[in-house]
Design a protein around this nucleic acid. Structure first.
Lengths: 335, 335
DNA sequence: TTGTCTATACGAAACGTTTCGACTAAAGCA
DNA sequence: TGCTTTAGTCGAAACGTTTCGTATAGACAA
């Protein structure tokens, strides 16, 4: 494959001149530019990214680490970030952790090997210990998306998760529900804990206390949520409404409901957190708390690119986006 | 950041010895291995991918080019390929074309700059002219996934698309439907054309001819399919059944149906091609023709890795996977 | 003893760029 | 006129690896 050397020879100029043309990094005469352009086309030159990266110390790579790229929610994030990166002359590299810290480590290691210029990451854990491990494994400008991690010196862009949980629960309480189940996520994960805290907060605001046995832990997956939902719904004192804290969990719940041949919202009201693009075609269309994921993604990559460009240290600040309730057909007032 | 040089100094051995340890590329004494291992940990060494890639001419990168990563169908492909790549010591880099040849070019260019070792691509067009352009832009071991392109010397892994279209249509004909609409994709795209051909083939097998006005062209998107569906369904002589040729299109159709407050399958039968993971929770759950996308992805990456490892020239062969009909609740016999 | 072989280890070249200091010639200035 | 700038160009060093030919030392055979 042709190198810059071939281009130089073909154009009858020095290698450094070709480089100057390529990068507009030094003044070059018009005729030289022209000769180089011709030579590039003639020899079919394509720059060698690795060589460039090695010499300049600049890989033009952005790492994106999400729980699971197969989840449409995160796939949408990936697409958005891909677009913005491409427009800015960067390439994004996406990896899934499967919510597994071990795999997260492996992925971060590979991204370090590639010397990514920056990182957008939705971490697998949010405790301080994990934060400590993470910061050792990162070492580049980073933005934390969607998830807070104790003691990490990076900018965080997230939803107001307490408010999200509160919004969902408050809606049901307002409709007269009193036995509201919640299928929460992995205990210890900030996003999950906060949404659960919001659930409790809504109860508190109504001056009643939730029943602890109606709070069940899952993970963020559909299958797990399905199983927890079945358990919850087969109890003799089953709840009249259920809150799920992620899109996949909402789906899992819907599967369970369908399996049990229950009528929604007649026999059970449902509120999910995070919207599903396919919500409109579900029957009933689920009432959800919408988190502005696309806007958050956009902010995250913009902020990251700015940090990289200005060599700014991370501010460690928070940017919190407000969720909102979108009422559809899966909830009804209790009579 | 620490380099191999620092490791060598710290361990009191030569750079080449460290390299030999790292790559197991030459015999090294046990004590040297140990010293190097300690030194690596001590200085916090992480190999520099670009340097390695430059010197060895081996990037360990696999490019994956899909129409749209935000489509769960392709996100699943990406996840599968990511896993297999990681296990084989490669990294996958995923890009979306938006079904736009221009963007496809841009993406391929970036992947060339990165000197990817191989490519899995779902191309944007399948005519010979596009094939010619593509082959110029590629130049590495490549597997074509899901889509045939005229005159490209690469291995193709695809579904039997004619059969997929036939299966969907035949099912409806067997149920007594005679006015079956089809919302096809972009004319000229092999996948789309073949599925349409299958539709006609089924009619032919039943000894009747389809009505041309019931065949409408769209693209593969939800919005487009939605609009075409509305048009189709508002005709006075509207079809009693509709076939859609992609998962997103099926969704678009379902939206349209819901908007028009039509009852499925009572007033309209629906068969989609490509399954939706969420099918089970839709009401009605759509009858679909399943294409074994995960198995195909797996085969594609395995085949690609084999080509890369053995420096085999592409065989240019085809591997055709058979689709099958999965009857759910969106179709009924016409009485 | 001498020579050959094997197991380790080493040093230096090379990969394809960018970058920087040095050089030339023309232009501007006093 | 001579001196300083400036635009344009060049050559060589450097980035962090891998790779290959060579060197050393001990083991073994003759």
């Amino acid at each position: 494959m042709a190198t810059i050397k071939d281009v130089a020879r073909h154009a009858g100029v020095a290698i450094s001149t070709v480089s100057a043309v390529l990068n507009r990094s030094a003044p070059v005469s018009e005729q030289a530019v022209e000769k180089v352009a011709k030579a590039i086309a003639a020899v079919g030159y394509v720059p060698h990214g690795a060589a460039r990266s090695l010499r300049s110390g600049n890989s033009q790579l952005i790492g994106l680490v999400v729980p699971n790229i197969a989840n449409p929610h995160f796939a949408a994030v990936a697409r958005e970030i891909e677009n913005i990166c491409l427009a800015a002359g960067y390439m994004s590299v996406v990896y899934s952790t499967g919510q597994d810290p071990e795999r997260e480590s492996q992925v971060l290691k590979m991204l370090r090997v590639q010397r990514v210029a920056g990182l957008i990451i939705i971490p697998t854990r949010s405790d301080a210990e994990h934060g400590g491990r993470l910061v050792d494994q990162i070492g580049v400008p980073t933005v934390l998306l969607d998830m807070f991690v104790e003691g990490l010196p990076y900018h965080v862009i997230k939803t107001d998760n307490i408010e999200a949980g509160r919004l969902a629960t408050d809606h049901l309480l307002e409709l007269g529900h009193r036995r509201i189940g919640i299928i929460a996520g992995i205990p210890g994960l900030a996003t999950s804990d906060d949404r659960l805290a919001g659930y409790r907060k809504a109860y508190a605001e109504h001056g009643i206390s939730p029943e602890p046995s109606l709070e069940v832990a899952g993970n963020f997956d559909q299958a797990e949520a399905h199983d927890r939902a079945i358990e919850l719904l087969q109890r003799p004192d089953r709840p009249t409404a259920i809150v799920t804290i992620s899109n996949m969990m909402t789906l899992g719940l819907l599967f369970a409901v369908r399996e049990l041949r229950m009528k929604v919202p007649e026999e059970l009201s449902i509120v999910g957190i995070d919207d599903l693009e396919i919500a409109g075609v579900l029957d009933p269309a689920p009432t959800v708390v919408v988190t502005p994921i696309l806007a958050m993604s956009r902010r995250a990559i913009e902020m990251l690119l700015k940090q990289i460009a200005h060599k700014q240290a991370a501010t460690g600040g928070w940017e919190i986006h407000q969720p909102y309730l979108l009422v559809r057909d899966s909830t009804r007032a209790l009579d």
